[in-house]
Structures are given as C-alpha cells and as structure tokens.
Design a protein around this nucleic acid. Structure first.
Lengths: 339, 339
DNA sequence: CTGAAAGCGCTTACAG
DNA sequence: CTGAAAGCGCTTACAG
C-alpha cells in the first residue's frame, strides 16, 4: 500500500482535495458533516500531509536556523534549549548551525534562508554573514534575523543582549568592595564584541576607584577552560600577583580555579576568583563560583519573540531587547588578603 | 527586482531550465560552453536554487532529526556537535528535537519523518515512538533510524552503543581494587536501559568479589546534578556509610562531591567518588573526578555513518556498533579508609 | 460551504 | 549534450 496523498483522502471521503486541505488547516470554515467524513478518512488512512507540497505552495519551510559558534558551550546550550521549546510552540522547527568558529560555515548557514531551508535566522556569531548594499535599508535585503549574545555592529537588525559593560563593572565593583586593588582580567577572544564591552566595564570600574590598570594583569583568553588555565599560570608567575581574578567566562574561571588548587593556593583566602555566565556547574565548584548570571531562558524566549514578529510580518522595525544580568555572590570571592 | 528562478536563469543564458538544473547538480554531463554561460548567469543573478521545488520533486528534505531528552546535558551536546559536523559533510542539515523528557514530544519529532520534514531519525530516547505492526519487519515500516545511548528493545534497527554493563563493572572493579567493600550506587532513572545495564554491572562486580549487596546503598537518581546531591545526603545519613560511591553520571558525581565538601568530608580520604561519562568538567573538579570515558565524537560519527547507509539505500540490514569506553583514574578515588 | 483550476520551482525519464 | 513535458503534493483565489 503506497503512501496516501491528499487526493486519496479526497476520493475516499468524497470531497475535493481543496476541502481536505481546508479541513486540516482551517476546520472552522468547513461544515461539521464534511469535517467528520474527512477526519475519518484521515485517521483510518493514517494520512499525514506532506510538507513538500505545502512548503512549495506557501514558500515557507517552517524552519528557523540557529547559527552558533559552539553548541557544547553551556551558555549556548541553555539558550538553544529555550529557543527550541519556544519555536516548537509557534510551529517552527530549529535547524542547528554549529559554525565551530569557521566563517565559511557561518556563511553557509546564513544562506539557508535564501534557499528556503529556513524562514528566519538567529545569529549568535559576531560576523555579519550577509552582504549588504549601501543604498538599501537592512530590513529590505535580509531575511528575518535576530542577533544575540555577540552584537553585530550593524544598524537595523533586532537584537537581544545583556549589558556586558555594566556586567563587568558590577563584577569588578564587587571585588573592589572586598578591598581588592590588584584585580586581573582574563578576556575572551580579542575581536568579540562581548569581550570589548566587558573590558570596558573592567577599565571603567578601576578608573572610578582611582586604580591604575597594570597591563600585566590583563590576559587574553578565548572563553574556553584551557585558556583560563593558561592565563592563571601566567598570572602566578608575576612578581606582584593579583589578589583577585575576574574571568570573562565561567569556563575560564573554572580552569583558573583548578590551576590554583593544583598549586596549593586557597580560594578565596589567597586569591579571589570571579566568573561570568553562571553556568550549571558554577555553584557546584568548591568553593562555589561567584559570577554574573545570564538569563539564558529569557534570552532564548526573546530571540524567538522578536523573530516571530518579523516572520508574522507584524513589523519591519528592528527591536532591541536588553535583559538584566545579576551578581551572584558565592564562596570563590572574599576579602583581599592583608600583606 | 524579484527573486530569480530557474526559468529566469534559463532565459538569461539561453538554455532550458533542465540544462540549468543539470549544470548545477551534475556539471559533468553538460558541455563546457553551456556550463560557462549558465554559471555566468547564475553568478551575476545571484541565483540560489529553491529547495522547495527540489524537495517536492525528489521527495527528500535533506534534513535529519535528532531526538534527545535534553540538549544541555554535556554528553548529548558533545554527541550532537559531532553529528551536526558529519551530517553537514554529507550534505544534510540537523533538526533539533529536544523532548524535555516528554513522550508526546518524542512522538511529534519522530513523525517529522512521515511528513517529509526529515529523511532520517536519530533516536537518543528509550521509547519507541513509532507504531509497529507485527507482521512486517521493522525496516519495512520505519524511516531510516539509528538508535543510540539508550537501547530501544526492538529488533531490526541500527544501534550505536557502549557496553554499559562492562563500563559499570570496570568502575566498581576499580573501587574494589582500592580495597572498598561498602560501595554505593547512585542510579539514573529506573526505567532507562542504560541504568539497568549499569546496575547489572554493579551487581555482577560485587558478586564476583563475594560482596553481598546492601540495598540501602543503592539510591535512585535521574542523572541530574540535584539528584546526585540528594542521593549523597541520603547516604550520609546511614549508620554504616559507604566508603565509595559510584554515580551513574558525572553530573550526579559532581553533585555528590559538592555535598560531601560542604559537609567537611575529604575526597577521597573519607569517601571515594566515581562518575560515568567524562564530561568536560570532570577533570576540573577538585579533586579531579575519576570516571568512565564515553567517546562522544565517535558515537556521533557512527550514528551518521549508519544512518547514511540507510539513506543511501545501501542496505536494509540493521547494524550494531559498539564503541569502547575507558576508565579514567583521577583523584576522586583512593584507598578505602581503614576503620 | 465547496469545487475546479492554477501554480509554487524544481528534476528527470524520454526523445532526439 | 540538450529540450519539452510531466509531475512531485499541496494551497488558495475565484466562482458559484
């Protein structure tokens, strides 16, 4: 028995294919009697409408592509889970675009909107993978897009962000309030907007406290665990060590902590460690990691919300949503040691 | 300027749509001269073929749906990253199906194959979301499927697994070799195949060592961090505490460790902790977590490999691939305390 | 409320 | 090597 199509169901129930389609998509505009006949045939035949025909006809795929640098990252994984759930509710499926940091793959995924594989794009990378012509506004040339986490420096696209600068400032102020004066910073990749923003917060908090920045205390990382370990090793070699280290991600903070503990240092008695993100494992470290909490669920929700606005044609206007971070004080930070 | 279609490109380059299609899909069967003409029009026009037409015609979506209970789990995230990369190489995209533990969503995702949204299904859940008729072999009624991680008790579908029983046995033998006699087990959800298999390994290792199982030491968890914390709290209340705890997941082990340390216990001097999975954070705990390593990359690769075999129509025969685990001894396990 | 008809944009078997 | 034609399976504007 071959797979049933809409024509088969129409024949079985004695109506036209159009009516079968209406019964399935828009039951209210069909008489009850017809509806019953059709549904009976649908159920007995086990008919599932093919998306191929519908997609071609409506020019919609029902898919949203999420372009992310690395899905194994706890922050990204948390966001994408929320995205998937919310998209699901709205009848959309999520296509996974893990770029693994490659610009070429970024471009590949972005183009899925052009071929109709996806109706909208969620961009968590910091490049703009689309070519823009100067004389047209972005909204006219682009598929529905929402940009999140790493702010792409382009006008006219919707964004969901946290205030990274304020977050970093809050982190450093927390350390200052504990009496720390030599506060190191372990950055993310130099060219990411989030790193530049957080760095700005770091500098501004120190400046406001009247502390001159020692550039030896500013170390480049890449948000990953290993770079946090490397940065800590570097800091431990300094003649004048920091009394606190602010890592721009929890992963780096966790790496830094493990290096410290391996070398017999006590956290926070000898050195305080501060993270950023509040991933699932932050509270489980010993000592539990003080960090800046990012609202992953809300970020995911907002992304879908803004994208749906565009998909539903409700608006062309880009919207900017800023979500609140929060300081979570745990045990990895404490008063500066007296020397 | 409206979006260009294949007919437009055909008109511009002075050939038929068929030839444009051939040039793009199968350049070798087109003369060089024609190819150049067509490619010129394609590039100048910025033409990207629509998948809608192609999908309908070929009855293929080019998508694979991955059905998983929770993508924020490090094990699942690691596997799906490999899956996505390998699928990409073969020209397939990955649709995310996060069931969040709900059977109804599982069914929903599985049905995406039926509607043509996906050409194949990767099942990491332990239910069989498809209805099978007795008189037909599974391969005849099902879309291409590969089952991994949780073994679905059904004949005739391809699987990618590790030997959970042997893995658990290895874990317990490691603890036995350190002189432990009171070894607790913190299980996963009771109805998952992986838990039952690991439990079997736990029992068999103890039996072989001539140790009678104390059922008070066998605690139910759900693979999550919190259940590991709860289990440890329960174990600490026992009059005769275990000297070692084997958690069926790293997440539970990490939860257990944090409870122990909060209560002033020393790991492994007072109690040894053993995990399962070897997630990214296992080596970063203090002390670093001893665990059973799962080859996530290889699991992902094998899943796509077996699925492609079916998608390419190379075979109907289900294949079973077993991948090797390995014991990773770190600092969270040590000699049993002498009392 | 329902049907007939057109058409979405491709690919491919067939004929030359 | 290339073209004309059919058709994949739906949806929807139009007419009644």
């Amino acid at each position: 028995m071959a797979k049933l199509g809409i024509k088969d169901i129409a024949a079985i129930s004695g109506v036209s294919p159009a009516t079968v389609s209406r019964t399935l998509r828009n039951p209210d505009i069909v008489s009850e009697e017809t509806r019953k006949k059709v549904m009976k045939a649908v159920e007995e035949g086990g008919y599932t409408p093919s998306r191929f025909g519908a997609n071609l006809r409506t020019q919609k795929s029902g898919n949203i592509i999420v372009v992310m640098p690395d899905i194994t990252n706890q922050v990204n994984a948390g966001i994408i889970r929320a995205i998937e759930r919310e998209a699901q509710k709205a009848g959309y499926s999520i296509l996974l675009g893990d770029t693994q940091g490659l610009a070429e793959r970024e471009k590949h995924y972005a183009n899925m909107a052009q071929s109709g594989q996806a109706d909208g794009v969620l961009l968590f990378t910091f490049h703009m993978p689309f070519n823009l012509t100067k004389n047209l506004p972005a909204a006219k040339q682009l598929p529905p897009i929402v940009n999140s986490c790493e702010s792409i420096p382009i006008e006219g696209i919707s964004k969901v962000m946290i205030d990274n600068t304020a977050g970093a400032r809050t982190a450093v102020e927390h350390l200052l309030s504990l009496g720390h004066k030599r506060i190191a910073a372990v950055m993310g990749p130099r060219d990411t907007p989030s790193t530049l923003e957080r760095l700005k917060g770091y500098y501004s908090a120190l400046k406001e406290a009247g502390i001159e920045v020692d550039e030896q205390l500013v170390i480049r990382g890449d948000y990953g665990v290993d770079s946090g370990m490397g940065a800590m090793e570097q800091l431990l070699k300094l003649r004048r060590r920091p009394t606190a280290v602010f890592c721009f991600s929890d992963d780096m903070a966790i790496g830094a902590m493990s290096v410290l503990q391996e070398n017999g240092f006590h956290i926070p008695q000898d050195i305080s460690i501060m993270g950023f993100d509040d991933i699932r494992y932050a509270r489980l470290m010993t000592p539990a990691l003080t960090t800046i909490h990012q609202p992953l669920e809300e970020i995911g929700k907002a992304c879908i919300e803004l994208l749906l606005e565009q998909l539903d044609g409700k608006t062309d206007k880009p919207r900017y949503v800023e979500l609140p971070f929060s300081l979570v004080v745990r045990q990895s930070t404490g008063p500066a040691p007296v020397d």
